[in-house]
Simulated assay, not measured.
Amino acid sequence: MSHPTAARFTLLALLGVSLSPAFADETSAGGASIGESFSIAQAEYDQALALTPDLENGRRTYLTCAVCHRPEGWGTADGTYPQIAGQSRTVIVKQLADIRARNRDNPLMYPFSLPRILGGPQQIADVAAYVAQLPMTAHNGQGPGIDLELGGPLYAEHCAKCHGERGEGNETDHIPAIAGQHYPYTMRQFDAIREGRRKNSDPKMVKQIHGFTSREQAAVLDYASRLPLPPEKLAPEGWTNPDFPAYVREPMGLPPMPTISPAPPSGMMEIPPFPSLPAYPTTTTPER
């Protein structure tokens, strides 16, 4: 595990990539100490990366992920779910291992990451390789674009050294790619780190984030959301994932409601009539 310097921490843990031993005595949401959670996550990370990925099994495993991240892995432009398509394999493995070891708190994703749902280290290796090869959309959620003159220099000073000048990340050091990521998602993660809700954030990173004003935060993340993607990573316009031919794509970009198969018996899903209120006796005011 690398120990980055302060300059690395502006956006380094937007997807959670490091843990300082300073947290070793704290307790995770699962009851284990943070140090124990880190050790569990690191062991599974090492194990998964040592395995040979099976893309076909990764496609099957990704069915669990597609519920929220969508078949293309593009998430949602409002930032509810991040774009994971094209993300480095090491980053995907690291996040899955961290979340299920409770080394990174993510209540929404935690149930989907459990071994009984997602599988073991082989399935992590497989799905990470599958996600990494998915083409990305350039139509990610972006910021307002009103302060890019400030965001550009901030990115060059604080972020480019680790995340790359083009936001491509670093696979060797499992530093996430941030080009193409949704602006609302990075804003939310930035806030979570600053407020201490990202338990695997390095204290030096938290300290540096506290030095950013709200304007600087918005400006640098807006700039990052507009970094151009390399042509080889872009999906063709109108592309849909052919591995999910039966997926119903709905208007307005909202996830479809799950279908029930087989259909429930007639009347089971109907709302019963509201029971009528009992009749209460009327009262009269006695004459005086």
Rank of each mutant, 00 (worst) to 15 (best):
I117Y: 11
L118P: 03
L118Q: 09
G119C: 07
G119W: 10
G120M: 13
P121W: 08
P121V: 08
Q122P: 12
Q122M: 12
Q122N: 13
D126I: 00
D126Q: 07
A128M: 02
A128V: 04
A129G: 03
Y130P: 04
A132C: 06
Q133C: 04
Q133I: 11
L134C: 04
P135A: 08
P135F: 09
M136D: 06
M136G: 05
Q142V: 05
G143M: 06
D147H: 02
E157G: 09
C162K: 00
H163I: 06
G164D: 02
G164R: 00
G164C: 05
E165P: 10
E165F: 11
E165M: 13
E165S: 12
R166K: 15
E171K: 03
T172P: 04
T172W: 06
D173M: 11
I175R: 05
A179N: 12
G180H: 08
G180D: 08
H182I: 02
Y183L: 01
P184R: 02
P184N: 02
T186H: 07
T186Q: 10
R188H: 13
R188P: 02
Q189F: 03
F190D: 11
D191R: 15
A192I: 06
A192F: 10
I193M: 10
I193W: 04
R194Y: 08
R194S: 10
E195S: 14
E195C: 03
E195G: 08
G196E: 00
R197Q: 14
R197N: 13
R197H: 13
K199L: 15
S201P: 10
P203I: 05
P203K: 01
P203H: 08
V206C: 05
I209H: 10
S214R: 14
S214D: 14
S214F: 14
R215D: 11
R215C: 01
E216V: 01
